[in-house]
Design a protein around this nucleic acid. Structure first.
Lengths: 222, 222
DNA sequence: GATTGGATAATTGGATACAAAATGAGATCC
DNA sequence: GGATCTCATTTTGTATCCAATTATCCAATC
């Protein structure tokens, strides 16, 4: 269900190309270092090179690919350092988001968060990498409450960039299953309604998963 | 000198268009809400619409313009809330940067920062909006030390977005002149080499200027 | 055997051409 | 008078074409 490509919802060919490529990159169909040839992709989705090129630019801005003049489009991928850096940035941005969200949290929100955790756990047991999407849903449910559109966009973009690595992580070890209790604790702290505390705990929550993930991911790549 | 357009350094037409438009937007030549017509701009710099369109996409990713299907490119501009939000994001990102930079700071760096403040002050007295660029230089001298490329890029992008508003601020009031002492205090705290303290002070430094700026800027616009 | 050189193929960048959509001005209707 | 409709104009989106750049391959050389 979540793997359906909303190409029919794309108003323009550029958007269709963008969504198509973003999905492919998120699910790891293209590997880091791989070169994307505009004409090939254009043929795949039945359009000319031009909209694909424009999609490339958006993906490059997202950090999903690298674009160099006259030498095309290369799937980006993250080095160990870059992955860690991304988690550092996530930690302060999501820390800010949760600080702003805390005063707005109601009992219903906490119930919703629990439901999302349940779903995440079920997805984890079924072995599907759906877990990654559920995990994103849980986090986004928190920071959406901040009511800060630009902040939300930035955080979402970072989630997309690390998504392939989260999937690999899940496929290698089943560490994510034990993540349930960590997230439960997170909810408990949020319930205290202490903004500073909430920010601090979210920061730690994110920074702690960084090294574990990074070690599993970059064992054999620059 | 700083207003020279490095068009000759642009390898590709798209890059030339991008630099041209970014400069125009930074210096406030185009006003928020104004529509940018690809063909007009293409004619201005002597190229076809195509590279300009691609430049539009990059500018949209930077948040400098808004792009809607079939209805073109509009100069973005920030509402009061958006400006404030941008400063909130800046505060945590630059807070992180200064935290990471603090352990790496040497005596030479502090001397360099003092020199940059002197230049900033001189630029301020000469009345030119060069002050804005000097102010950027000062801040970037700090966060460059963090050694985090992605973080630096994100912060720089935010500085570009708020640049037009900083210029307007400078042109209206000469508040920036009194900013010298605030920045001096910032340096003093950095010299303590206390990472947590440095982060906290940088956050405050940025958040404090936000409302002042926002009030002067959005008196007559949504 | 590894390296350099150059011809050829693959690929990108940019201009032009054309179709589709939006914008705007004037006429028409209520 | 104000709202709505119509049609010409403007502007955007995409395909195609050509030039310029880069990658690849194969032979010649050290």
């Amino acid at each position: 269900m979540s793997s359906v490509l909303p190409t029919s919802l794309a108003n323009t060919a550029e958007q269709e190309a963008y969504l198509y490529l973003q999905h492919a990159l998120r699910t790891g169909r293209y590997k880091p270092g791989e070169r994307l040839i505009s004409e090939e992709i254009a043929a795949e989705i039945g359009m000319s090179r031009m909209p694909v090129r424009e999609a490339f630019r958006r993906l490059a801005a997202d950090g999903l690919v690298t674009l160099r003049p006259n030498r095309g489009c290369v799937v980006a991928g993250l080095s160990f350092d870059e992955l860690y850096e991304t988690f550092e940035i996530r930690s302060v941005l999501e820390g800010l988001a949760v600080r702003l969200a805390t005063p707005k949290m109601t009992e219903e929100h906490f119930e919703e968060l629990e439901r999302l955790l349940d779903r995440m756990e079920r997805a984890g047991h079924s072995g599907s990498s759906d877990w990654v999407l559920r995990h994103q849903e849980f986090h986004s449910a928190i920071y959406t409450l901040s009511g800060r559109p630009k902040l939300i966009r930035q955080i979402s973009a970072l989630h997309v960039v690390i998504e392939p690595y989260m999937r690999i992580w899940f496929d290698y070890v089943n560490k994510p299953l034990s993540a349930r209790e960590e997230h439960d604790q997170l909810i408990k702290v949020l319930a205290l309604k202490d903004c500073a505390k909430a920010e601090e705990v979210m920061r730690k929550h994110i920074l702690e998963t960084a090294p574990t993930l990074a070690n599993y991911v970059n064992s054999g790549r620059p």
